[in-house]
Amino acid sequence: MNTDIAPVALIVEDEPQIRRFVRMALEGEGWQVHQSETLKRGLIDAGTRTPDLIILDLGLPDGDGITLIRDVRSWSPVPIIVLSARIDEGDKIAALDAGADDYLTKPFGIGELLARVRAALRRQHKAIGEASSKVVFGKVEVDLQKRQVLRAGQPVHLTPTEYKLLSVLLANMGRVVTAPQLLREVWGPSNGDNGHYVRIYMGHLRQKLEDDPAQPRHLLTETAVGYRLQP
């Protein structure tokens, strides 16, 4: 991504009012915005405009947005944020598994939208500029090289599984990670039916790292989809 000229965003969304306010919000942040109304048009624009960000509605009239994700992922790591209705949790997980970076549930606020966009871009920057060995969120400080976790300056004991879970979330800071993905990365590929493992260890992490585990500020639950580590 070239930082000298305005970054390019592509909105693939059939609803003009939604397109309009998403465009206004992104333009307010200095983006140059292109819009596609259909999946077909979106596929073409994704190729020709070489956007730095794609915002994609999953419920397009002429096809499944997941095909666009797969297509784009085959040649570009560009961040893709998916817009979807509340009841389609399965669709969200499918989109994330297909390579989408994040999702927003309709209706969503502009604050939410911009936060997701920033998180996605930051992650990409970091991937290019190599991660620093120290990560900080809230009162928690993680030294990735020493594998050390401090909370308000005090060392916190994490079991290896807890640490592994935390490190996966850290690697995806600000981004939702689906429960199946966490299971795969922490416990290995043969644990598809043990969704409760993730929940139990997530509970442990919250007990150790959050002020109020019942109202977490950083280790957030994305209901029926997965988890997000909010900086």
């Binding site: 009012q17 939604i18 919000a25 209705a85």
Partner: peptide, 23 residues
């Protein structure tokens, strides 16, 4: 119905929020 009702509401929420953020 769910799609048709939610779509204009999404627009409404987003547009009204745009208004609060307008410059």
């Amino acid at each position: 119905l769910s799609h048709d009702l939610r779509t204009p509401l999404t627009g409404l929420v987003g547009l009204s929020e745009s208004l609060t953020l307008s410059k």
